[in-house]
Simulated scan of single mutants.
Amino acid sequence: MNNNHFSDVEAAVNQYSEVDSFYQVSGQACYVVIAHFEQTRLKTFIDHLSNWARYSVEVVLNDKKSN
C-alpha cells in the first residue's frame, strides 16, 4: 500500500460476499484475499480497492495437492 488506510481497505474488502478468506500477512503484501468473483464483479472490486491499495490478481489453474 502507498498509504496507511488499512481500515479503509479492510472495510472495503469486507463489503463483498464473494470474499471467502481475508488475511493480514507479513512480507511484501499487506493482505491476501481469497475470493470467487464473476468477471464484471471482479472489475468493480478492483476499482473499489484501487482507491487505497495496489493489487495483484492470481488465478488458480489446477489443484496439484496429492490426496
Rank of each mutant, 00 (worst) to 15 (best):
Y31S: 00
Y31Q: 02
Y31F: 07
V32L: 14
V32A: 02
V32T: 14
V32K: 08
V33M: 08
I34R: 14
I34S: 09
A35P: 07
H36V: 05
H36S: 12
H36T: 15
F37N: 00
F37A: 03
E38M: 06
E38G: 00
Q39P: 13
Q39G: 02
T40M: 03
T40P: 00
T40V: 04
T40F: 00
R41K: 11
R41I: 05
R41Y: 02
L42Y: 00
L42A: 05
K43H: 05
K43M: 10
K43Y: 08
T44K: 13
T44A: 06
T44F: 02
T44D: 11
F45V: 03
F45M: 03
F45K: 02
I46H: 07
I46Q: 14
I46M: 09
D47T: 15
D47G: 07
D47P: 00
D47R: 12
H48P: 07
H48A: 10
H48Y: 09
H48Q: 05
S50V: 00
S50C: 01
S50D: 09
N51W: 10
N51K: 14
N51T: 13
W52T: 05
W52Y: 11
W52N: 07
R54T: 11
R54C: 14
R54I: 12
R54A: 13
Y55H: 08
Y55K: 06
S56F: 05
S56W: 06
S56Q: 08
S56L: 12
S56K: 13
V57H: 09
V57A: 06
V57E: 14
E58V: 09
V59L: 08
V59G: 00
V59K: 05
V59P: 00
V59M: 08
V59E: 02
V60M: 11
V60C: 01
V60Y: 05
V60N: 05
V60R: 09
V60A: 13
V60Q: 03
L61R: 08
L61V: 04
L61S: 11
L61Y: 01
L61E: 03
L61K: 09
N62H: 11
N62L: 06
N62V: 12
D63Y: 10
D63T: 08
D63W: 07
K64C: 01
K64H: 11
K64P: 02
K65A: 13
K65S: 06
K65N: 12
K65T: 09
S66P: 14
S66Y: 15
S66E: 15
S66M: 14
S66D: 12
S66Q: 15
